[in-house]
Simulated scan of single mutants.
Amino acid sequence: MVTEKAYAKLNLGLKLLNRRSDGFWNILSVMQTIDLYDTLIFKERTQEIEIKCTAPDVPSDSENLIVKAAQLMRKRLGVDRGVHVEVEKRIPVGGGLGGGSSDAAATLRALNRLWNGGLGRDELFEIASLIGSDVPFFLKSGTAIVSGRGEVLEYINLPIRAYYVLIYPNFPVSTRWAYHNQKTSLTGESKYVNFIDSWKERKEDGRLLYRNLENDFERLVEIHYPIIREIREDLLSEGAIAVSLSGTGSTVYGVFKTLQRAQLAAALLRKAGRTIFICQPVC
């Protein structure tokens, strides 16, 4: 038996740079793992790949990235072994927190151990890239500047301690829908892109990241789901130093300097139809 934690992530900014010839977008984002996680327990089976999840809306067939990851590991290792996976789901589905991708990465790590695969990080990275654009990021915890379609990672040290209040409005936003409907011209000047470029050249202080956050999906998502704007305004009114959508949503997070301030804001913002988490980065 093998147990893995699959950590959620936040996008500390997300810019769409240009559409690629393969249909994907080149992006720029700072992604950070946080201490909200799913717990996955893996038990050996003879041949079947079985999933039992605490969230009833999570598929257990080939649509689940856990199944895809297990199938790819079987093919790569040349084995015909099965696995039973129990998933204690804490990361909201469709919340822009990468729960499905993180579960897939946890599956690669776990099966490499359970099936004595002996694969190194580069080999796992190659398999992860076949599953989804952001799956490679979840192979390890930390903070990274992410580019390409999500597979180019530059791990960094973010020199600031922050506390996040995450508000999930209890409905998902489809990543596919968001990318399909993103028709805004993205060729203008971007303070976020300029900041990241300067930061990589050590011309900017990383502690200023939160002042420069931009997410190209915020306008689209707020138009279709006005509650997102309401949540953003609520977080700002309770003292968040920055507020942003994570990924394509639907989760909105506020950045706070102290745990006490984050706890107070979370208590004041609890309402029906909202799920709230207080999180910290995981390095």
Rank of each mutant, 00 (worst) to 15 (best):
M1A: 14
T3K: 15
T3S: 14
Y7P: 06
N11K: 09
N11C: 04
N11M: 03
L12D: 11
L12G: 12
G13H: 08
L14H: 05
L14C: 07
K15M: 04
L16R: 10
R19C: 02
S21I: 08
D22N: 13
G23I: 01
M31A: 07
T33I: 05
T33P: 03
D35E: 02
D35M: 00
Y37F: 15
Y37A: 15
I41E: 08
E44M: 07
I49G: 13
I51P: 11
C53I: 04
C53L: 04
T54I: 06
D57Q: 15
S60E: 13
S62C: 07
N64T: 00
N64H: 03
I66A: 00
K68R: 08
A69H: 02
L72I: 09
R74V: 12
R81G: 11
G82D: 10
H84L: 15
V85A: 01
V85S: 01
K89R: 02
R90V: 13
R90G: 09
R90I: 12
G94L: 12
G94V: 07
G94T: 04
G96Y: 05
L97V: 12
G100Q: 08
S101Y: 04
S102Q: 02
S102V: 09
S102T: 14
D103N: 15
D103A: 08
R109S: 06
A110G: 04
R113H: 06
W115P: 00
N116W: 07
L119D: 04
G120Q: 13
R121E: 15
R121P: 04
D122L: 12
L124R: 01
S129L: 00
S129D: 01
D134H: 01
F137Y: 06
L139F: 09
L139A: 02
A144R: 13
I145N: 13
G148F: 06
R149L: 09
E151K: 00
V152W: 02
Y155N: 06
N157P: 00
L158E: 10
P159C: 04
I160Y: 01
I160C: 08
Y163L: 03
Y164K: 03
Y164V: 05
L166F: 11
I167S: 05
I167A: 03
Y168V: 00
N170D: 13
N170R: 15
S174R: 10
R176H: 13
W177Y: 12
Q182M: 14
T187S: 14
G188W: 08
S190P: 00
Y192A: 00
V193R: 15
F195L: 01
S198L: 05
S198R: 15
E204W: 06
E204Y: 06
R207V: 07
L208P: 00
L209I: 08
L213A: 04
L213H: 01
D216L: 00
E222A: 12
I223M: 11
Y225G: 01
P226N: 01
P226W: 06
I228D: 02
E230S: 14
E233A: 11
D234Q: 13
S237I: 07
E238I: 03
A240V: 04
V243L: 10
G247S: 01
G247M: 03
T248R: 06
G249I: 06
V252L: 14
T258G: 10
L259N: 15
R261Y: 08
L264N: 14
A265K: 00
L268V: 07
L268R: 15
L269I: 02
R270E: 15
K271W: 05
A272R: 14
R274D: 02
T275M: 02
